[in-house]
């Protein structure tokens, strides 16, 4: 059991709400001390998965073990060994900072000998030392987020579940929050985190890409970028853009075309021969080409590439 203490093992997990399949036969395993990211658009099934892993939702079928315990059959054993931060801020706004911490310490049955040390640690970690008496509702969102994290880890859980922990938080607070997550992982805590921010996904050790309830790829960010692309990536800046995407979608040798800001990303089998060919193709059709060059793919490219072949549109489709 000890080797399982900080692991999450998921086998063919399914959750249906009526006719709708929110999570569709998802399987994966996490390793001790890793930051495991669940990346996907809103509505992809990330929160539903995390809620099943925390024992808040009963799986329709499949199996999930958290810290060595089955989430469906021993939910309370699981809950004592995990920390959970829900997507929506859910501490008590009408309680003071210190009162929220003591409340959750009580619920997690934190020993009275270590109680004050743990609360002190959580206050330091959240940057709230000296502000125990502040009403939680008056804190800015970045502090609230770190306080919620503090409340979730008072009992030193070996596994931490964070559901979109940085949504609605300013960029600097987001950065600080990720520093905290890295520090905890370095101490051996397994961190399971969902996000729809592609840049945040880069901070994870491993990523699972989830789309319409299905796990479409799994690997380190680098692996995903190198292996999951069906070809090489080109960046095109051409005028007018709307006509460019129309023309390029049906151009010979173009596997995929998607708009990224004011440019297009094209997937082609090989970049070197494609560049002059496509430039000529565009100019023959009266488009002005400002840029056309090979680039390194981002996770977003990977995501679009992996999901565009499916029946439904990519992340924007939701």
């Amino acid at each position: 059991m000890n080797q399982n203490a900080s692991s999450v093992v998921v086998e063919s997990l399914v959750k249906r709400f009526g006719d709708f399949t929110a999570v569709d036969h998802v399987s994966f395993e996490t390793r001790r001390g890793e930051i495991f990211g669940f990346l996907g658009p809103n509505g992809a099934g990330k929160s539903t998965t995390i809620r099943m892993l925390c024992g808040l939702l009963q799986p329709t079928s499949g199996r999930a073990q958290v810290a060595g315990f089955d989430v469906a059959r021993q939910p309370d054993a699981v809950r004592q060994r995990i920390g959970y931060m829900s997507q929506k801020f859910s501490l008590y706004n009408d309680l003071r900072v210190g009162e929220n911490l003591r409340f959750f310490a009580g619920l997690y049955n934190v020993d009275s000998e270590v109680l004050s040390e743990r609360i002190h640690w959580a206050l330091e970690m959240a940057g709230l030392a000296g502000r125990e008496a502040a009403l939680t509702g008056t804190l800015a969102s970045g502090w609230k987020q770190r306080l919620a994290l503090g409340c979730a880890v008072l009992h030193r859980p070996p596994i931490l579940f964070l559901d979109e922990p940085t949504s609605g938080v300013d960029p600097i607070s987001r950065r600080q929050f990720w520093d905290l997550i890295h520090r905890m992982a370095a101490e051996g805590v397994t961190v399971f985190v969902t996000t729809h921010y592609m840049d945040e996904a880069e901070y994870c050790n491993r990523l699972a890409l989830i789309h319409r309830g299905q796990l479409v790829a799994l690997g380190t960010p680098t692996e995903l970028k190198q292996r999951q692309m069906k070809g090489e990536l080109l960046l095109v800046e051409a005028e007018p853009l709307a006509r460019a995407i129309e023309v390029l979608s049906s151009a010979p040798g173009v596997l995929d075309a998607a708009v990224f800001g004011n440019a297009l990303h094209l997937v082609v089998p090989q970049a070197a021969p494609a560049i002059p060919a496509l430039r000529r193709y565009l100019e023959e059709r009266g488009l002005r080409v400002a840029r056309l060059e090979a680039i390194e793919p981002t996770l977003e490219d990977v995501f679009v590439s992996l999901t565009s072949g499916r029946a439904e549109p990519g992340p924007e489709g939701n």
Binding site: L56, D76, R79, Q80, S86, S90, L91, L107, Y108
Partner: peptide
């Protein structure tokens, strides 16, 4: 209504 229930039931409280 305030969303605090989700955090509450994620703890071992019976």
């Amino acid at each position: 209504e305030r969303g605090t229930m989700e955090q509450l039931i994620s703890t071992p409280v019976t």
